[in-house]
């Protein structure tokens, strides 16, 4: 098992591994998401308060979960890259960041489209929307720093430090925004998964979360392949690869 992990960290082995695995994960995620959509948009009954408007939950919650999950993956990989000087780990951070940013963007857009019928405006300075907005800023800072250097390795290590500073800050930001929100707005309308949701409503949600996770896995692998190719474009195995294909 350990030997296998060690092998996986070597770029050529990883590249071939990802080449085989990514399409499978991609098609599987499509199937799971289609099943989740059928359950969420057709089978699930309308909410007794929000009518059919609640159906945005099936894309909003998975996006919001992925936006946070991706940051954790990015920061963990950044720490591994800094501590053990592992090149592949830095490539993981760089590959995951754009995906995380796009899901943060989706969580914001779907959240505000959901807010319009529920709150009456597209944007409310609600604690969760505000935290999500700050998370988007953190992603954009990371991506900007990662691309700012001519030397890829410097960019990787500099942005890894930023990702770690960010991950220490996230709980503080989250808590302070919540504190600020209760101070200024009192109670906000709670929306999201309610505990008394019937199974016909929450099972599609779980299926959608699983589908989004699979999508994330598939296309992080694909992006990671690109990052590895860019970083290793002069190495022997890439030359070999180019000649055989």
């Amino acid at each position: 098992m350990f030997v296998w992990f060690h092998k996986l960290a070597s770029p050529p082995f990883f590249y071939r591994f990802a080449q085989k695995l990514a399409p499978w994960l991609g098609w599987l995620s499509l199937l799971v998401i289609l099943a989740g959509l059928y359950g969420g948009l057709w089978l699930a009954p309308p909410d007794y308060q929000q009518g059919d408007g609640f159906r945005i939950i099936y894309v909003h919650v998975p996006s919001a979960m992925l936006s946070m999950f991706a940051y954790m993956v990015m920061a963990t990989a950044a720490a591994i890259g800094l501590i053990w000087r592992m090149k592949l780990a830095h490539a993981v951070s760089a590959a995951v960041a754009p995906l995380g940013a796009s899901f943060t963007f989706l969580a914001l857009i779907t959240g505000s489209l959901w807010g319009k019928p529920m709150w009456g405006t597209y944007w409310v300075w609600d604690a969760r929307l505000t935290s999500e907005l700050i998370l988007l800023f953190l992603y954009l800072g990371y991506i900007a720093l990662n691309h700012a250097f001519e030397d890829r390795r410097t960019g990787d290590r500099a942005s890894a430090i930023l990702a770690l500073v960010g991950v220490v800050n996230i709980p503080i930001i989250h808590y302070s925004v919540q504190w600020w929100n209760t101070l200024h707005q009192g109670q906000t309308i709670f929306f999201g998964p309610k505990s008394e949701m019937p199974p016909s409503m929450y099972i599609p949600l779980f299926i959608m979360i699983l589908g989004f996770m699979l999508f994330f896995a598939a296309f992080s692998l694909k992006r990671l392949q690109v990052e590895v190719l860019q970083r290793e474009n002069k190495s022997a195995w890439v030359r070999e690869l180019v000649e055989t294909t």
Partner: peptide, 17 residues
């Protein structure tokens, strides 16, 4: 030009409190 983009999100808790 980059510095504010990197640092401003981190300063939000300080601003709030």
């Amino acid at each position: 030009m980059l510095l504010p983009i990197l640092v401003l999100p981190l300063t939000i808790p300080v601003l709030i409190f």
